[in-house]
Structures are given as structure tokens and as C-alpha cells.
């Protein structure tokens, strides 16, 4: 029974994240539009865009190699596997032991590596520009992410996400300064990783400040659809990660019944909607920053991560 349920949970989660990710993007866009007194596209618009792109022919530049054509699938697959291993509504994922938080972060790194290489493949100035800036951001974001992992692993005694989520949901955790710091740091890193304002603007095009859009400039058709879907998945993954680590209320634990799983799923949807709304409000309220200010922005995350870890060494209760 336990095995069947956890296999079921794993399968449901894999399908759920793919189905839900473009909707989340749609929700964020809708809320942003409403905040700026526009009506906005329907929340299902990203899904429609992806399906439309999938049916179109793909146009590939003459100078592109097979790396350009293979990269979208690698990006999507790595992001999907990472998203499938972050607990969303239940911690008893069948394959959660195949990768801990460090490996999940590294899977996102694999997706970024493939995307940056694809950006360099056509041999245009924009692609290289996006790739070089993306790698700069990653240079600061990755150590920050590791230090956050450290803080969490020290507090929960494991780098395994399901164990961390279980420990965070447990009664003995309580409020801690270091976890607050980790939350702020993780939020900053997530903003940068997903190319949101103030780091990058997902809505820009044809601007010298863009990063993600510059790398995918040459993509079209099914390749672009894969990349868009992966970007949505990454946003969902980030929100799920913050949700399962810092707001694990109601998440189904191993051994819980089917009804608990269903209420947990409903609660998860509410959490994600809330997170998306908060993101939209934040993005409407702040302005984008200069590229060379971003390392300072991420440096704050790095310092908070380190401080959180050191505080835990000073006292396990902080």
C-alpha cells in the first residue's frame, strides 16, 4: 500500500508540475496586469502559447549545430526531474532518495549550462551576452544556495528535501532567526534564478539589459515551447521549494491516508497561488536594477546564508 501510494504520489506530482507550471505563470501575469489596471490575458494563455508553438515549424539558424537542437530537451528534462523531486503536497515521493537538495540545485545548473551553450551556438552577439551574464549571476547564486542548504541541513540534520520538509513541519522546530535569514536568502536567489525583476525582466525584449531572453532569442517553434515550459517549471519549483521548506503546513507525511493527500494538494494549490500573487505584487512595486548591481543583490543572499549557518553554530536554538 505504501509503495503504491508513494509511486502514485510521484506520478501525480510529475504530471501536476508540468500541468500547473504554465498556469502559475499565467496567474502571475494576470495579477501583474490587474495591478497596473490592465485586464490581462487569461491565466491559461501560457498553455495556449506553448501548444501553438509546438505545432509550428522550428526555424534553426544556418550556423547552429546539434547542440542548439538538443539543448531545449535537456533543459526541460533536467528542470522537470528537479521539479519532480521537490515535495509539493506530499513528502513520500517514491524517488526522493535519488537526489538531495544539492543534487537538485545541480540539476538546475545542468539546465543553465545547456541553455548558456545553446546561447553561444548560433554565434550572435546577443546569445553570448545573455550566456555570459547568466553565468555571472550563477557564480554568486550557487554558493548562496549551498549556504542556504547548509543552514537547512544543520537545522534539520539532513540535506534530503523530504526529511527537511518533515523536520520543518515537526513541532520541535519553531521560529528561528537563522531560518528567517535562510528564507530571505532563498527568496533572493529564487528571484535571480528565475530572471524576475529586479534581476531580469521576463517581459522585456530587444533591450540590452535582458539575460534569459537574449539566450533564447534564436529559438522558435517546439524548441521555444520546451524552453518556455522549462522556465515556468523552474518558477513553480522555486515556489514549491520555499513552500515545502518554510511553510510545510498540511503537507502529507508518509503513512497518511488518501484524504490527507487530497487536502494537502488543495492546500498546496492555495500556497502556490499565494506565492505567485506575492511575486506579482513585489515585481510591480520594485524597479529592475543594473546588471552590475545584481552581484551585490545576490551577495546579500550569500551573506545571509553564511550568517544563518554561523548562528546555528553559536546556538542550535537560534
Amino acid at each position: 500500500m505504501g509503495l503504491i501510494l508513494s509511486l502514485l504520489v510521484q506520478g501525480v506530482q510529475m504530471a501536476l508540475v508540468v500541468a500547473l507550471a504554465p498556469v502559475l505563470t499565467g496567474v502571475v501575469r494576470k495579477v501583474k496586469a490587474r495591478l497596473t489596471r490592465r485586464r490581462g490575458a487569461p491565466v491559461l494563455q501560457p498553455w495556449r502559447d506553448i501548444l501553438k508553438l509546438l505545432r509550428k515549424e522550428a526555424i534553426v539558424a544556418d550556423s547552429a549545430s546539434w547542440v542548439f537542437r538538443a539543448a531545449p530537451y535537456v533543459i526541460f528534462a533536467a528542470t522537470w526531474v528537479a521539479a519532480a523531486l521537490v515535495p509539493t503536497f506530499a513528502t513520500n515521493l517514491q524517488f526522493s532518495w535519488s537526489a538531495d537538495l544539492i543534487a537538485i540545485v545541480a540539476l538546475l545548473g545542468l539546465a543553465r549550462f545547456a541553455l548558456a551553450l545553446a546561447g553561444m551556438d548560433v554565434g550572435t552577439a546577443f546569445g553570448g551576452l545573455g550566456a555570459s551574464r547568466e553565468m555571472l549571476f550563477a557564480t554568486v547564486a550557487e554558493p548562496a544556495m549551498l549556504l542556504i542548504t547548509f543552514t537547512l541541513a544543520l537545522a534539520a540534520g539532513s540535506s534530503q528535501l523530504s526529511t527537511i520538509a518533515g523536520a520543518m513541519a515537526g513541532p520541535e522546530m519553531g521560529l528561528r532567526v537563522s531560518l528567517g535569514m535562510a528564507l530571505v536568502a532563498l527568496t533572493l536567489v529564487a528571484l535571480a534564478e528565475n530572471g524576475r525583476i529586479p534581476v531580469d525582466n521576463p517581459a522585456t525584449h530587444l533591450e540590452l539589459t535582458m539575460v534569459h531572453e537574449a539566450m533564447v532569442l534564436e529559438y522558435s517553434g517546439r524548441h521555444l515551447a520546451m524552453i518556455e515550459l522549462a522556465a515556468s517549471l523552474k518558477l513553480l519549483l522555486s515556489l514549491s521549494l520555499i513552500g515545502c521548506v518554510f511553510f510545510p503546513w498540511g503537507i502529507a507525511a508518509p503513512g497518511d491516508g488518501v484524504t490527507t493527500h487530497l487536502t494537502a494538494a488543495a492546500l498546496y494549490l492555495a500556497k502556490i497561488a499565494l506565492g505567485g500573487t506575492a511575486l506579482a505584487i513585489f515585481e510591480t512595486a520594485v524597479a529592475k536594477m543594473r546588471v552590475f548591481r545584481v552581484p551585490d543583490f545576490l551577495g546579500i543572499a550569500l551573506m545571509l546564508g553564511l550568517l544563518g549557518t554561523l548562528l546555528l553554530f553559536v546556538s542550535r536554538g537560534l
Binding site: 530537451y73 522537470w80 535519488s98 538531495d100
Partner: peptide
């Protein structure tokens, strides 16, 4: 197993299968 585990074979297999 509670401290942290990694399975290169499964991760590689999952990525390859999902991409395929």
C-alpha cells in the same frame, strides 16, 4: 540514508528518459 543520498544512475536515467 537520512543524511543525504544521491543516485547518479537514476538521475541520469530520469533526465535521459524525460528528454527522450
Amino acid at each position: 540514508a537520512a543524511r543525504g543520498t544521491y543516485n547518479g544512475l537514476l538521475v541520469g536515467l530520469f533526465v535521459a528518459l524525460s528528454a527522450g
